[in-house]
Write a protein that binds this DNA or RNA. Structure first.
Lengths: 339, 339
DNA sequence: ACTGGCACTCTATGGCCGTGAGTGCCAATA
DNA sequence: TATTGGCACTCACGGCCATAGAGTGCCAGT
């Protein structure tokens, strides 16, 4: 009973602070929410909440502001599911309509997510690690240059130009192509190493050095996860904030430029298909202590292949962000599985 | 003589304002530069410069600030060539070292440019319009799905998945592939339409509908596809400014997210291999009235294929930006031509 | 357990004023 | 004629003070 109201107060504080951006006092609280008690009672509750670490005051005689711990409690126990509005449904179906290309899907997704949440959106390209090889293609560009193309069943296409140590005759290249194609088609990208082991030895010693380079490059493309690309959108939304958050955007923008950092962040919140939230100091990156990350994994046929999410100030609208992230992740999974 | 000193004063004002960020007064000017005259003389010159529209004062009894017209004069007639420092040379050669892939070259270039100028850098992918076809590849993904890959001699690789109206037999596909390959290899991308005209009619009526789709897609990739990509880097540099420029980043960030806008801007400054500058209101985009764009085209074998540049506040360091842009454009052209 | 009331604390706001940088003008000068 | 020193004037900025108001904590009463 008492606990219940305290949590209701916390929820009200979070909601008010998120919408106004200013510390919220006891009087304003009872005015805006029908809590059924007087401001004095609220004050007692607020004092208790402050003792427990859920809220804090910027200075004496100012309203209260949620702490990271407060947001955490809000997210874990208080925020209800916010259904999508019809406009949002329409936006998503519009987005579904024009999907042609994987690149296209990615850039549309990131724009959609940024628009729905009015925050910075991140979408990671499907990883090759969990994917299977649908096809490979080897094209001779010149005597000593090859183009190697690898097509995964997620629709992702990777290509790499290979510089050969020596020319390779056309008929030998044809044999190599056939042999490699039959070896890797349908295999998991992560399992290519054992499959390709020993293949070079099947061929004459004249083409072995070239073949070694080709196989090495193929493994590099398939396994090296550092190649992961992330698309970013809605950066301008950061500048919309007029509070202290906008005052030091620098570390945030810096973090957003570091692919490595982003991959690490997304990796941490995209373990499953549930929406995960990192709030303020829960972030492993110093520059992001004032921001929160809402993310989720998405996948193909029940397997998580990549992550997506949004980044914004800790005082973001979590319910909106969480439902948007969840929905887009689901739609994206559906599209991938249909392909 | 008189004209000479007035211009020297203008140059000094621009330089001081760029480095300090604050309106510059007559006294500060004579202190920091050895102009050989007293502050009263400078005041007369400044009044004249103001009459002519080169400088302005934010309010009475404040120092002067260059106008867009002042920057324009500075850029056109006053800024000397600033040679690259050894550290900068080293940065560029380091950048040259690890170039493997076209994607890699692009992302390295943009980072390099952002680092050299400490501003937002843009690099446009080489256009296909001026390029020739080095190779095409048609891969059957399933009965009714093809992957079409086009490799240009700029190193750019475009791919597109094609949904066929009906299956196409393997042997027919082989013929189509051979025919198309011989038709387009070595041709200019912009000249593909006449080359491919009538090719469909050479084949049996059963595969004609499919072939039409394939050819249409190829043309789309090669010609119509103005879907030019632009890589962007150094956005965090925008937030480094502590003056009024940082106060409204929003329109700038918005403009930077609009590929269309960026393409238009870059297109305007990358006509030739000379560095071009758009200052403040010279920009066609309202949100960029407070920014300047320094850009240049780069190319392959004397032909301009794309543009690159930097975006920053009008009070940027033009000499630094201009030399950086020029150098990177030259190095990029060299790399492309070597390929 | 809740409420009304009250004293207290601070921040934010606005007016006031002195300071100083910067200007324009003018008479004197080389 | 171009330059200079001098001088009065303007105006943003920072410090200071008083006031207003929002918000708190506490306590006694129900």
């Amino acid at each position: 009973m008492l606990e219940d109201r305290r949590l209701a107060v916390l929820r009200a504080i979070v909601e008010d602070y998120v919408s106004t951006g200013e510390p919220v006092g006891s009087k304003a609280l009872v005015d805006r929410h029908s809590l059924g008690v007087s401001s004095a009672t609220i004050r007692n509750d607020m004092a208790a909440l402050e003792d427990e670490g859920y809220i804090a005051q910027p200075h004496t005689s100012a309203g209260r502001v949620p702490t990271d711990m407060g947001y955490r409690a809000f997210v874990d126990r208080l925020s209800g599911v916010k259904p999508l509005s019809s406009a949002e449904r329409r936006a998503i179906s519009d987005f579904l309509a024009g999907a042609v290309d994987l690149d296209d899907v990615m850039s549309r997704s990131v724009r959609l997510l940024a628009q729905l949440t009015r925050q910075v959106a991140l979408v990671q390209y499907p990883s090759l690690v969990q994917a299977s090889v649908r096809h490979i293609e080897i094209v001779a560009l010149s005597e000593t240059r090859l183009l190697l193309v690898l097509i995964a069943d997620t629709g992702r296409v990777e290509q790499r130009v290979i510089e050969l140590p020596a020319p390779i005759p056309d008929e030998a290249l044809g044999q190599v192509r056939t042999r490699l194609l039959s070896a890797v088609t349908g295999e998991r990208c992560s399992d290519l190493a054992p499959v390709l082991d020993g293949v070079a030895e099947e061929f004459s010693t004249e083409v072995q050095p070239q073949l070694v380079v080709i196989i090495a490059t193929m493994l590099e493309i398939a396994v090296a996860r550092e190649e992961q690309r992330i698309v970013l959108g809605g950066t301008a939304n950061l500048a919309r904030y007029r509070d202290s958050f906008a005052a030091n955007l620098e570390p945030v923008l810096e973090a957003l430029e570091e692919q490595v950092v982003l991959l690490r962040l997304l990796g941490e919140v995209s373990g499953g298909d549930e929406v995960t939230v990192r709030i303020g100091h829960e972030n492993p990156v110093e520059g992001l202590y004032g921001t929160s990350l809402v993310g989720s994994g998405y996948g193909r046929d029940e397997t998580i292949v990549a992550g997506l999410g949004v980044v914004g100030p800790t005082h973001m609208d979590y319910p909106v962000s969480m439902t948007a992230v969840r929905s887009v992740a689901q739609y994206l999974s559906r599209i991938l599985s249909e392909t």
